Simulated assay, not measured.
Amino acid sequence: MRSHRPAHRPRTRYRIRSLGAAAGTAAATAVLVLGPAATAEAAPVAPTATASAPGGNALLLGIDYAAWKRDVAAVMAPARPYVEQRLAQSPAGEKPAIVLDIDNSSLETDFHWFWTVPTPAIAEVRDLTQYADAHGVAVFFVTARPGIIASLTERNLKQVGYPVSGLYVRDLPDLFQEVSAYKAAKRAEIEARGYTIIANIGNNQSDLVGGHAERTFKLPDYNGKLS
C-alpha cells in the first residue's frame, strides 16, 4: 500500500510597506506586496479574529469590536435628530457643512487588518452623511493622513458610500503644526469658503478642539488607544 505525500507547494512571503507621517501624527497606511521577500521582512502571524473583533490594531490592544460599536451608536444616536432640527432652522442662503475625521471616526481603521480593502465604513456615521448630503449639506473630511495617500483615501471613502465634498490631508508644511491646530485651521478655511459647519465628528480631542463648528460629536478612542 503506497503512502501519499502532499506535493510540495512553494510558499509566498509577504512584505509590508507602511506609509505615514511622523509618529503619532497620522494613521499609518500599509500596502501589501506579494512575492518573495527576505526572511527579516516576513509578516508576523496575526491573532485569530473572532466575530466580535474582525482584527487589526484594536484586536492586538484588546478593544472589543462589539463594545466599540455600542459606544459609537450611543454617541451617534442624537446626531441625526440634531441635524434634522438644525436644517429646519437654517436661514435662506446658508451653506451648511459637516466635517469628519477619518480613522475610527468615518472608517473602522483599527478594527481590520491592513489588507482589508476598502476599509469598511462606520455605518452610523456614513448614514448620517448620506442623509445630510441628500438635504444639501456639504461633507468635508479633515484628516492627519499624509497627502501621498490622498487619492487612495478618497477612493476608499467613496467606495464604502460616503459623499465627499472635499478632503483635506496633511501636506509637508502641515507636518510642522500640532494636529489640533492643523485641523482647526482647515475648518476655518471651510468657513472662509462660505460654509457654516453645523457638526464636527471625530474620535480624538485633536479632531474637535479649536472651534469653527457649532456642535461636536466625540466617538470613543479609549484614552488614545485608537488612532
Rank of each mutant, 00 (worst) to 15 (best):
M1N: 14
R2T: 13
R2K: 13
R2Q: 13
S3V: 13
H4D: 09
P6E: 07
A7F: 09
A7E: 15
R9G: 11
Y14M: 06
I16C: 15
L19N: 03
G20C: 03
A21Q: 06
A27Q: 15
A28L: 07
A30T: 10
V31T: 13
V33G: 00
L34W: 02
L34G: 00
G35C: 01
A38F: 04
T39C: 02
A40M: 10
A42Y: 06
A43R: 09
P47N: 04
P47F: 00
A53S: 15
A53I: 07
P54W: 12
G55F: 12
G55W: 05
G56Y: 04
N57C: 01
N57M: 11
N57S: 14
L61V: 01
I63G: 04
I63L: 15
D64S: 07
W68G: 00
R70M: 07
R70A: 14
D71E: 14
A74C: 02
V75E: 10
M76C: 12
A77S: 11
A79S: 12
R80F: 11
P81V: 03
Y82P: 01
V83I: 15
E84N: 08
E84M: 08
A88P: 01
A92K: 08
A92G: 03
G93H: 01
G93Q: 01
E94W: 01
K95W: 02
P96M: 05
V99C: 14
D101C: 08
I102C: 09
D103C: 05
E108F: 04
T109G: 06
F111K: 08
H112S: 11
H112K: 12
H112P: 11
F114R: 14
T116H: 12
V117N: 14
P118W: 08
P120V: 06
I122P: 05
V125R: 02
V125F: 05
Q130M: 05
A132T: 05
A134K: 13
V139E: 01
V139L: 11
V142A: 02
T143C: 10
T143M: 09
A144I: 00
A144R: 03
P146Q: 02
T153H: 02
T153S: 02
E154N: 10
R155W: 07
N156L: 01
L157G: 01
L157P: 03
Q159F: 01
Q159L: 15
Q159H: 07
Q159T: 14
Q159M: 14
P163E: 12
L172M: 11
D174M: 10
L175V: 03
E178D: 14
V179Y: 05
V179A: 10
K183G: 02
A185C: 00
A185M: 08
K186L: 00
R187Q: 06
A188N: 07
A192V: 03
G194R: 06
G194I: 06
Y195A: 03
I197K: 08
I198D: 04
A199C: 09
Q205V: 07
S206V: 11
G210R: 02
G210E: 04
H212T: 00
A213Q: 12
E214P: 01
E214H: 05
K218I: 04
L219N: 02
Y222G: 09
K225R: 15
S227V: 15
